[in-house]
């Protein structure tokens, strides 16, 4: 059994991400076999040339989207944290879309049901392809703990102004 703190999700480094949307195209390519950012499970925001970030599902603990669904169409996989959509139960009301603070829930333009990041578990690649394709290496597939460690390392490095790489 995977502990909740070991669940991995895709996250973008704000210092590296430039909003080039390669992730969106990679996502629609592997999950939908077409090129269409409207069918991507990750969306990049370019607010201005210096303000960019790609955002997708963070596999929250106690996810608001699941709680919000009036049709019980959403559930969270215990091991991976992935939000699964029962496409027969979902009626496309969009309450989960409103509930998600990250805008990670999307309405599928053809199926008319919601969809979100599956960490590429449903396609033959089995590992998140946005991470693999990101030209900036801004995307990583990490646990919350790994993110926290990275931030702590950086904070300490800044404090000591050291060039020593963490062991």
């Amino acid at each position: 059994m995977v502990r909740p703190q070991d669940r991995k999700f895709v996250t973008a480094d704000p210092e590296k991400c430039i909003g080039c949307v390669v992730c969106e195209y990679a996502c629609s390519m592997v999950n939908e076999n077409t090129f269409n950012p409207n069918k991507s499970r990750i969306r990049a925001m370019r607010m201005g040339p210096l303000t960019n970030l790609a955002v997708t599902c963070r596999h929250c603990e106690d996810p608001a989207c699941v709680a919000a669904c009036p049709k019980d169409a959403l559930s969270q996989e215990e091991n991976s944290g992935i939000i699964r959509v029962d496409e027969n139960a979902c009626n496309g009301c969009g309450w989960c879309i409103a509930a998600c603070q990250f805008g990670a829930m999307n309405m599928h333009p053809e199926k008319k049901v919601v969809f979100t990041c599956n960490s590429c578990t449903d396609n033959p690649d089995k590992e998140p392809q946005c991470v693999k394709w990101c030209p900036e290496e801004a995307l990583t597939f990490v646990t919350a703990e790994q993110l926290a460690q990275k931030s702590r390392q950086k904070a300490v490095q800044n404090l000591f102004q050291t060039a020593e790489t963490p062991k």
Binding site: I18, C20, V21, V22, P49
Partner: peptide
């Protein structure tokens, strides 16, 4: 140059975003 960004679906980075840090045109970008 504050950041080098790029276009959609590109693996190069060419847009050198320049910001004026001081003087009469401070903040110009």
């Amino acid at each position: 140059v504050k950041k080098i960004v790029g276009c959609a679906t590109c693996g190069m980075r060419c847009d050198h975003i320049a910001v004026v840090p001081e003087g009469p045109y401070k903040g110009s970008i």
